[in-house]
Design a protein around this nucleic acid. Structure first.
Length: 478
DNA sequence: CGACGGGACGC
DNA sequence: CGACGGGACGC
């Protein structure tokens, strides 16, 4: 694997951290003797004895660089206090301070024996112990909990007895634990912002919008609501506070097939009014678009308002309104969602939709597996797909629809303000299956541009890249 | 007490 | 082309 004995000792950086030892030894000890005694602990990448520039005489100080921190730690533990030759003083072995630190303070075991990890919220301290005892004797395990509710914050500490045990755990435990050495607790300055970090809500995209947003209550229409704005037409008006381009509106509403018109509204002076008109060629698409996109955060944090507008062509009598809604909703439900679309069920409550095989809400030339349930939200994420959208992200529910089909999808996360996101899976195999199925295939509804995704490892680079080409419903004929 | 050298490019 | 959000302890 990583023999690389030909590699010149170029690594002047202390990489990985804590892999270089600082030795205080008798001036009479040679480099060869050091090598003999230390190479039994692992791959030595470099030995450097500090010598007087003129006399070339050893100053009794050496550095030994190992490939791994665990090797350096084991050597330190075993060799500290040993005599390397008759009549010489016992050697001292410390972890070398990182070259950039500038400090020459001894690194204490205290700083090398406690690891800090991310764990599922369901993990108990006993689970922690069971998981991490294979790397060495554990002094204690602690899970960080909310002090008032006692609920786990998904973070923990494991204190080992020896630095080599902590290093081995960091090197060998599952990467999803993100194990690192814990900063010593005594130092208050580093992480004293507990109050801020603890106040974080789970919803990154603030929920502050609903209250105080003038259009907030214009969301889903309700049955029996007699407002005159509830006429059903093929024509929609979308309003946005944040500036939004015609491209973006087009991309968003074109996700629903049947759009035949989309235009930003401008005032008489040509300034955008933050509104756009969209017309579909059928009522069902318009109903579905309003249902799905009204209140949708786009860009994240900006709640779109979508309402029907009367284009003079699709007036419906108040009497027929409800029937129209039900028919349109049911139709779209069959086409897009299968019988169990959560939002549409609200509209057609009590109405038993015909049983239709699950059809994806997206159009692909890939045969997608059937819908699968999402994994529980507190599932441990073992793999993520990194997805790039162009020009704009697809709605989360559409992405869920596609990516859940390979199983164990935990969450779709879109990076706020960027055209990228992550599909998180509880099982690596499912993520790989999604890649295998979608790699190079034309799929997904029309973001009018390619969507590409890669499988990023949690740490390592990966060359597994695939692209999904946007597919417009209305170019099926071409 | 006991702390920082050597070497150097390929698209 | 395009890349992030979590993560710190009452001694």
């Amino acid at each position: 694997m990583e023999d690389c004995s030909f590699r010149p000792s170029t690594d002047s950086l202390d990489d990985p951290p804590n892999s270089r030892l600082f030795l205080v030894i008798s001036k009479s000890i040679s480099e060869d003797v050091i090598r003999e005694n230390f190479s039994v602990f692992g791959e030595i990448q470099d030995i450097w004895m500090v010598k007087d520039k003129q006399t070339k005489e050893s100053k009794g100080v050496s550095f030994v660089k190992f490939a791994k921190s665990s090797q350096a730690c084991a050597a330190m533990e075993e060799m500290h206090g040993k005599c390397l030759a008759e009549g010489t003083k016992p050697i001292k072995v410390f972890m070398a301070q990182s070259r950039s630190s500038g400090s020459h303070r001894d690194v204490e075991d205290e700083e090398l024996t406690r690891i800090f990890i991310m764990i599922p919220k369901t993990f108990t301290e006993d689970d922690l112990k069971e998981t991490f005892k294979e790397y060495g004797d554990i002094e204690y395990c602690i899970i960080i909990k909310n002090k008032t509710t006692g609920e786990s914050k998904g973070l923990g500490y494991v204190r080992y007895h020896k630095p080599s045990q902590a290093a081995t755990a960091i090197e060998n435990c599952d990467k999803t634990f993100r194990a690192i050495l814990a900063e010593p607790r005594t130092k208050n300055s580093g992480a004293d912002n507990d109050y801020f970090s603890n106040a974080r809500s789970d919803h990154v995209t603030g929920d502050t919008g609903m209250s105080g947003y003038p259009f907030a209550d214009a969301s889903n229409y309700t049955m029996g609501d007699g407002r005159s704005s509830d006429i059903i037409t093929r024509c929609l008006m979308v309003s946005s506070r944040a500036s939004i381009t015609q491209e973006q509106v087009y991309g968003l509403f074109d996700l629903i097939p049947g759009m035949d018109y989309c235009e930003m509204q401008r005032d008489p002076y040509g300034f955008s009014k933050g509104q756009a008109m969209i017309r579909y060629n059928n009522l069902g698409s318009a109903v579905y678009a309003k249902e799905k996109l009204n209140g949708f955060e786009y860009p994240p944090g900006n709640r779109l308002v979508v309402a029907y507008i009367d284009d003079g062509e699709d007036r419906s009598s108040p009497v027929g309104k409800m029937a129209m809604q039900l028919v349109a909703a049911q139709m779209m439900s069959m086409v897009w969602n299968g019988p169990s679309g959560p939002q549409l069920m609200k509209t057609s409550a009590g109405f038993s939709a015909p049983s239709v095989p699950q059809m994806p809400r997206v159009q692909t030339d890939v045969v997608l597996p059937p819908l699968k349930k999402l994994a529980p939200s507190d599932s441990w994420v073992k793999e993520r797909l990194f997805v790039v959208f162009n020009p704009a992200p697809l709605p989360v529910d559409v992405l869920e629809d596609v990516f859940c089909r390979f199983g164990s999808l935990v969450e779709v996360y879109l990076v706020p303000g960027r055209n990228v996101g992550y599909m998180k899976y509880a099982e690596r195999k499912n993520a790989n299956d999604a890649m295998a199925a979608l790699h190079g295939k034309r799929s997904l509804t029309s973001a009018r541009g390619p969507i590409r995704a890669i499988l990023p490892p949690n740490r390592e680079l990966s060359d597994m890249t695939f692209s999904m080409t946007g597919h417009r419903k209305d170019d099926a004929s071409t």
